[in-house]
Amino acid sequence: MTTAKKALALHRRLKGKITIESKIRNLKQGDIKLIYTPGVAFVCEAIYKKPSEKYNLTSKGNNVAIVTDGTRILGLGNIGPYAALPVMEGKAVLYKEFGNVNAFPICLNTTDKDQITCTIKAIEPAFGAINLEDIESPKALEISAELEKTLSIPVFHDDRHGTAVVALAALFNSLKLVRKPLSSRIVLAGAGSAGYGICKLLRFAGCRNLIVVDSEGAIYKGRTRRMNKYKKEIAEITNPKRQKGTLENIIKNADVFIGVSGIKGLLLPKMVQSMNRDPIIFALTNPDPEIDPKVAKKSGARIIATGSYMYENKINNALVFPYLMRVILDRRIRKITLALLHAAAKAVASTVPSTQLAYNHIMPEIGNRQIQNNISRALRKFK
Rank of each mutant, 00 (worst) to 15 (best):
T285L: 00
I315W: 01
S59P: 00
D31C: 05
V64L: 03
D214I: 04
V67R: 07
A254S: 15
K6M: 14
T2V: 06
N374T: 00
P51Y: 08
T37G: 10
R225D: 10
K264G: 09
G262D: 10
R377P: 04
T117M: 02
K96Y: 06
V64T: 02
Q372T: 12
V348A: 02
G16D: 13
A191K: 07
G162W: 02
G265V: 09
A318L: 12
I366R: 13
V178I: 15
N102T: 05
K96S: 06
P51M: 06
S350T: 05
E146A: 09
A191H: 07
A140V: 15
L151H: 05
L132P: 08
Y196V: 06
I304W: 08
E365W: 06
K314N: 10
L210T: 01
Q356N: 09
V352Y: 04
I375E: 11
T306R: 03
L247V: 04
I66Q: 00
K33C: 02
T119K: 05
E89N: 07
L74Q: 09
D112F: 00
L8W: 07
N62A: 06
V101P: 01
A358F: 03
R369G: 13
T37A: 10
H161A: 01
A83G: 12
A343P: 03
G90P: 08
G245M: 14
D292L: 08
Q29S: 13
M1K: 08
I250H: 07
S152P: 00
E216H: 04
F282R: 00
S274P: 04
V320H: 04
Q356E: 15
G39R: 07
L319D: 11
G30D: 14
L188T: 07
T3M: 09
N286W: 00
F257Q: 03
F104L: 14
K241L: 13
L94K: 06
D330W: 02
N209G: 13
L27C: 08
L379N: 03
L57H: 06
I20N: 05
V295R: 14
I336E: 14
P86K: 08
S52D: 15
D134M: 03
R332V: 11
G75M: 11
Y323C: 13
A126K: 01
N249G: 11
L357V: 06
